[in-house]
Design a protein around this nucleic acid. Structure first.
Lengths: 220, 220
DNA sequence: TCTTTTCTCCATCAAATGTTGGAAGATTAT
DNA sequence: ATAATCTTCCAACATTTGATGGAGAAAAGA
């Protein structure tokens, strides 16, 4: 009960309840800025400017830069979790190859429309934050548990799943993030249009992942 | 001849000729700092401190922060190219699955020992640099051409290779970067040691990639 | 309507960060 | 040995960036 109260009273919960509020608008701008430039690359002025407000309004709503960043990460975390749970329901009781096909399709659509999410995750994965910042390091770790559940199904207890299998799911999941985040770099290399890119990425992921995973005894 | 002269006279070439010089030492520190924190996250003071010199010594040798950053990227570019060319020679005339096996092995060893290289590449791929910076955007693009050559062999002209095939090579290549760069995030998830991680990553990459690629008519 | 609270902006501050000048030390050439 | 050059550091400067106080507008409550 106590925890529930804390959750509801949190600034983030408040922003989520009313997506048109200034708080939510700033959060959204922050998401994009942090996603594009990273924690240090994004400035509070830049975020405020994109939200169309004065910088002190930002501080009024969110406090320190670090607090805002944490809110962004927590928020993205919830969004992914929600999406994954949604997919989990859809693919339940499907055969493995179908599970993968659907999951890849849905996730690609979801992330291509919200590229800041994979960007932010990537930053969490391998960009350090300066030691002098007293940021409570928060990482979207559990999403991988759900990813594993999708890939493997809920039939087995998670402890039973081998490290090998987990690693393969990580690889699969991260390939999606990669293609979305690095679109601006990859697309010119391939010389194709945006829509073409989306199609070919899905195709590639399915092509690489499905045969690999369906041949895994662990997942059967 | 003129170009050759320019190349030799460049600051970077000078640093490479003498790896014990202060110039080279600063370049190496810069590599690590930019690799860990990104362009904006790494400060000139931080780089100088790691190199054990005063900050003005850094500016004396390399000029603006942006110039130093460009030198770092160019340098890493050359290193990768060299490694890829080396591997290309080894795997030449081997069957496709062997080519992949060797390439994955060598590349993993190489990158795991120099994690700043994949880090920097990842930053190039999806971290923006603030617009006010007048950084000439420089990207390690061509490395993908060589990667494609390794994967596919030099038998075909590169123009003949389908976009699909190129995309698949991109996916493969990037999976390696990912596992190396995100080790600090992935390893705790999997609950394994450093050496175990290295082994399982190689295994995973081979498991996923080799079957996918050897079944590709394009690459035969 | 009047009061209270919430919100937004302007002006400003302090610290961090990029950058430079010049003095002094080290190295090389003559 | 002496001059010339290269290298390093200390001190400082200008700008950027994180952060705040306070005045007034807007909204909510009485």
């Amino acid at each position: 009960m106590f925890e529930r109260k804390l959750l509801v009273a949190s600034p983030l919960a408040k922003a989520r309840r009313n997506p048109n509020s200034m708080k939510a608008k700033i959060l959204s701008s922050a998401s994009k800025s942090f996603g594009s430039y990273g924690f240090h690359g994004a400035t509070t002025r830049m975020i405020a400017k994109e939200a169309g407000v004065d910088i002190s309004t930002l501080y009024y709503h969110w406090g320190e830069k670090q607090d805002l960043y944490e809110a962004v990460v927590t928020d993205l975390d919830e969004k992914i979790r929600h999406k994954l749970e949604q997919i989990e329901k859809i693919v339940k009781d499907q055969p493995l190859s179908t599970r993968f096909e659907i999951a890849i399709d849905r996730l690609c659509d979801f992330f291509f429309d919200r590229p800041e999410i994979p960007n932010l995750i990537q930053f969490c994965y391998f960009s350090k934050i300066r030691p002098d910042s007293n940021l409570r390091f928060k990482v979207p770790v559990y999403i991988n548990n759900i990813a594993i559940a999708i890939a493997i199904g809920t039939s087995k207890s998670r402890d039973e799943i081998s490290t090998k299998a987990k690693t393969r799911v990580l690889a699969a999941f991260n390939s999606i993030f990669n293609f979305v985040s690095a679109e601006n770099m990859f697309r010119p290399m391939l010389g194709i249009s945006r829509p073409e890119y989306r199609v070919i990425v899905k195709d590639t992921l399915k092509f690489i992942l499905i045969p690999a995973f369906t041949s895994m005894p662990d997942l059967k």
